[in-house]
Computed example of a mutant assay.
Amino acid sequence: MAKKKKADEGSWGKLVRDIVVILILVLGIHSCVAKPFYIPSDSMMPILRNGDRLIVSKYPYGWSYASASFHLAPKKPGRWFGKLPERGDIVVLEHPVSRVDYIKRVIGLPGDTIELRGGALIINGKPIKREVEPMLSVPVDANMPGPDSSLGRFLSRDASGKEVLELPIVRETLPGGATFDTIDMGPGYMTDDYGPVKVPADHLFLMGDNRDGSADSRVAVSQKGLGGPVPFDAIAGRAEIISFSTNGTAIWYNPLSWFTALRSDRAGTNLRPAHDPNAK
Rank of each mutant, 00 (worst) to 15 (best):
R211Q: 12
L256Y: 08
M190Q: 12
I251C: 01
A236I: 02
G161N: 02
L206T: 08
D265H: 13
E240C: 08
Y253P: 01
V170K: 02
G228V: 10
S222L: 07
V230R: 03
P168V: 08
F232Y: 13
L226H: 12
V138S: 13
P175D: 00
V170D: 12
S257R: 01
N210A: 07
F180Y: 15
T182V: 14
L174F: 13
G208W: 01
R266G: 00
P127K: 14
V197S: 03
T182F: 11
S160Q: 11
W258Q: 06
F259I: 15
D233I: 01
R238F: 04
A178I: 12
M190L: 09
L155M: 15
M135E: 14
D216Y: 05
A250V: 08
D193T: 10
G237V: 04
M185D: 08
G176H: 11
D233N: 06
I183M: 05
H203W: 12
I169A: 02
T182P: 09
S243F: 07
G248K: 13
W252A: 14
P127H: 10
I251K: 15
D212M: 07
S149G: 05
N143Y: 07
I128R: 13
Y189I: 00
P175A: 00
T191E: 14
E131H: 01
V221Q: 02
G248V: 11
N254L: 14
I242N: 01
M207T: 07
F205M: 09
G177H: 07
S149F: 07
E163Y: 05
R266W: 01
P127N: 10
T182M: 07
T179N: 06
R218A: 05
G146L: 05
P175Q: 00
I235G: 04
P255H: 02
L262I: 06
P255L: 01
D148N: 14
G177M: 10
G176S: 12
D216C: 08
V199R: 07
A215I: 00
S264M: 11
G161Y: 01
R218L: 03
I169G: 03
P139L: 03
I241F: 02
L167V: 10
L167G: 08
G176Q: 10
N254W: 13
N210H: 13
P127C: 05
P145V: 02
G146D: 11
